[in-house]
Structures are given as structure tokens and as C-alpha cells.
Design a protein around this nucleic acid. Structure first.
Lengths: 248, 248
DNA sequence: CGAGGGTTTGAAGTGCATCAAATAGTGTGG
DNA sequence: CCACACTATTTGATGCACTTCAAACCCTCG
């Protein structure tokens, strides 16, 4: 972790470029910066468990974190997978300071932790931040809604198609090449299916939409074909990126 | 609709007993009351469609309303079913004044509609109401989370078991008798399954947990047996009512 | 090169959906 | 109070999608 900036400066820099903090008080930035910690966690590190008492909320500076729940017998359901700039854990303020999901680092991650008390105070006293929080939660909710809908309406290969479409940055013409952001097993769990099902469904998707898959690289020749296959079982059509977008 | 109160009084009365309005300004109550309309809609009435522009938010004074989404080909997924005291549609303020779901009256309903502008104004200017809104949205989100989890973890008869358990008002001992709040076809769709599946899964539940079912009446002799069957595939055990509770 | 994890393939089973039809239940007009 | 119409619910038969268990394959990294 060699950097021109010291940790405090890095934190301040990150906060200032995170949309959620737009319009917050100087105090908030200062307090957050001074009380935040920047830590680096490796793959496998559990940040907290479902039902744990929450003390901080988090911002991912760089890396990947998985949110999930599990039953008593250990089956787990991945709720979300987050990366750079994403915020999580803040909603616990309204949930009795209790986490609603577990969080695990799935790839080396630099993480900023900020005490919830600071956030709570700012939300209560700064309408602008209360509004930002409302916007954040509303987006999260929208995302959750779609998540459930997808699971109800779409079959495995359509869910994969949807996942791929949402990796596309800009609506663009011609051939598109992109990469899965993490390994297939994880994508499978993100989409609530078994790795075997993922593998077979991807095969089916290839046949039916003409996409090419080699390792984690995907080439799309005819995006309309993919869209048609994928979005027919959905309440909104591609590009629906604004609805599923990253949240920060 | 014979009542000792005129519509305006009824509206005011309803607002004042709705938790969401605790701590709101006098102005808010007054404005809401004067600009709200109390209407009565019959079964089948569509209040709005997914993607419609939103102009009001709603409070159910008495009745039942179904929230749902549908795909182009008309398949529908029921998101929620609401009744007395429930609020919906307010979140559209943060969603570009666009509805995220359709709403249909499923049983004769008295409905209060209040212009969104009033709510928006109050949220922006009254931190107490902003906080209430945050709490409401947080509860909704919690509910959505569980909804998805259930769909991933539980099979049909477990989802029914969970639905039944959540109908229980108070943790109580001994035999419990309760009634399904609306017809079985609707419960089935609420739980994302076909009526046929519902019927068979309920039969299975009877055999495995010893509950008795006659029409819409359900008798539970041994609640532990039901809980064990139902909650084994969940991240939280009965009574989890606080997490799934009505939202108003 | 070999170990170990990620990925694919095969074979078999399960749960739910679907289509079809029977049955029960409810409200209507006579 | 009955017969009819209509809807809700159940039952049966069948098919498909996904899971599960097992094993092979592939890739990467020490």
C-alpha cells in the first residue's frame, strides 16, 4: 500500500468524491475523516454477521465485498456484491443497530469504516444528508424489487443474460467485449443458482443469442438478440441500467 | 357509507392515528386533510400502473390493495398485499415521481389520496418526518429482503407455513385458530406459486405439521412443529413478526 | 510437475408448472 | 328454497428446470 497520500488524506479524498456526501457539513467530513479507519482486508475476512450489533458503516475504497444471509444449516443466499465507491451498513441506524446481512471480503479490499453515531447525527441535523440517505435507500429498494422480480420471472439463462447486459457501461453499437467481474461460481451464487446450473445455462445462452464466451471474456455481436432473449421476462427492458446501477 | 363523521373529519382522524404522521407539523395535517380525497373503490379498480407518473401517495383506511408488477406478456408477480392503515406510493418522491409497481383494489376499499408535493415539502422541512420516512423505507426494505430470502430458501409448503405463522397476532400457547385474510388463489400469488401448487403444498403442510384446515380456517395444535418445519430454512426463527410486520 | 480450486459434463431425482377435468362453494334469479 | 352460473379449489397426469451427487477436465500457481 504505497501511496502519495497518508491514510487520513485518502479517506478525505474518498469521502469527497462519494456522491452520498454531497452537501454534508464540513463538520461531518472532518469528524468522519478523523474517526474513520482505513483498513485492508484479504479474501475470506468476515466484516460482520447477520444480527450482529452494528457500530460502523462502510465505504469500499477499492475491492470487493459480498453481502449474504444464511440459514441455520449453513445454506447461504448472496444478497449483493459490492465494489469501489459502494456504501453499506448505514441502514442499520434504522434497524436497531443490527445488521440484516453478513458481509465478507471476497477480494483484497481497502475499506473505510465510519462510526454510525456520526452518520446518525448528521442525518438528524442536516436535511440534505437525510435526503441523500433517503435517495440511497430508495435506490437500494428499487434494486431489491428487481432482484425479486428477476427471481420470479426469469429462468437461469435469462438471469445470466440480464447480468451480462448490466455489465455494459454505455449503450453502444457493434461488437461488445466484456469481462465477468468475479469468478463464475460467485456469479452463480449472486444469481441464486448452482455453479452447474450456471455452466449449463450459459451454454444455452450462447446457443440462443450468439454470444461468445471464453473463460471470463464475453463477446456480444448482436445485442438485440441478447436483449430479446433476456428482457422478455421482465417488467423493464434494456437498458434498464439506471434502475440497477451501482449505488454510491 | 354512513358515518357520524364527514369525509374531512374522517381523513383527519385517520392521519392522526397513523404512526407515520407522529411528529408532523400542524400545517402538514391541515394541508393533507384539506387536499386529500377520500374515495371508495371496488374490487378490480386499478389505482395506477407500474411506470405511471405518480401524483399522490395513499393510505388505506379500510380494505385491501394488491401491489404487483408484470412482464410484457402479462405474467404478474404480486409484490405485496396491503390493508387498513398501510401507506404506499410515497417512495415515488425519490424515484422520479414514477411508480415502481401497479396497484389494484382487491376488495372494496376506502382510500385516502394525498398529493405528493405536500409530503415532499414536509420531508424536506421537518426532520422528524424525514426520519419517519426513513424508518418506513427501512422497514419496507427489511421486508423485501426477507421476501427474496424466502423465495430462495423455502419451498412451497414452508412459504405457506411462514405465511400462516405471521398471521398469528401474539405469541400464544395452546390451540390457535385463525383465518386466511383473503382467498387461497390470492395467497398463492402473494407467495409466488400457482393455485394448484398452493393446494398440494398446503396438504403436505397439514400432513407434516398436524395443522387442520377447513376452508379458510386454520387450527394449529402444535406450533413448535409448525415452526420447526417452516423456519428451518430461514435466517430468522419464529416469532419474527417484528421483521415482517405491517408497516403503517 | 503436481496440488487444488474452478469449471464442465453426466446421470438421476425433485419440485413446481402446466394442462385438463372434476368437485366444492357462492351468489343469483325464479 | 331450489336450480343455475360462475368462481374457487382440488386432483390427476405429464413435462421441464433446476438441484444433487459424482467424476472428469482445466487452469493456475507454488
Amino acid at each position: 500500500m504505497i501511496s502519495a497520500l497518508n491514510p487520513t488524506q485518502k479517506i478525505e479524498e474518498t469521502l469527497k468524491k462519494t456522491a452520498f456526501f454531497n452537501g454534508c457539513s464540513e463538520d461531518f467530513i472532518n469528524q468522519s475523516t478523523s474517526q474513520a479507519t482505513l483498513s485492508c482486508a484479504n479474501k475470506g475476512k468476515i466484516l460482520f454477521f447477520h444480527e450482529d450489533k452494528a457500530k460502523h458503516f462502510y465505504i469500499i475504497q477499492r475491492g470487493w465485498v459480498k453481502l449474504y444471509r444464511e440459514t441455520l444449516d449453513g445454506t447461504q443466499a448472496v444478497t449483493d456484491i459490492l465494489t469501489d465507491g459502494h456504501i453499506f451498513g448505514g441502514e442499520t441506524i434504522f434497524q436497531n443497530n443490527t445488521h440484516l446481512y453478513s458481509a465478507e471480503v471476497i477480494e483484497k479490499t481497502n475499506l473505510i469504516s465510519i462510526p454510525l453515531a456520526i452518520l446518525k447525527n448528521e442525518i438528524e441535523n442536516n436535511p440534505k444528508i437525510a435526503m441523500n440517505m433517503l435517495l440511497l435507500m430508495s435506490k437500494n429498494q428499487q434494486k431489491q424489487n428487481l432482484e425479486l422480480e428477476h427471481h420470479v420471472f426469469k429462468n437461469a439463462s435469462q438471469r445470466i443474460g440480464c447480468f451480462i447486459l448490466r455489465l455494459i457501461d454505455q449503450p453502444q453499437k457493434g461488437q461488445i467485449t466484456l469481462h465477468l467481474p468475479y469468478d463464475k461460481t460467485l456469479v452463480a451464487s449472486r444469481l441464486h443458482m448452482q455453479p452447474e446450473t450456471f455452466s449449463r445455462a450459459l451454454l444455452k445462452l450462447k446457443k440462443e443469442t450468439g454470444i461468445e464466451v471464453k473463460g471470463s471474456t464475453i463477446k456480444i455481436d448482436n445485442i438485440d438478440r441478447l436483449t430479446k432473449h433476456t428482457c422478455s421476462a421482465c417488467s423493464s427492458q434494456f437498458p434498464c441500467k439506471d434502475k440497477m446501477q451501482k449505488l454510491a
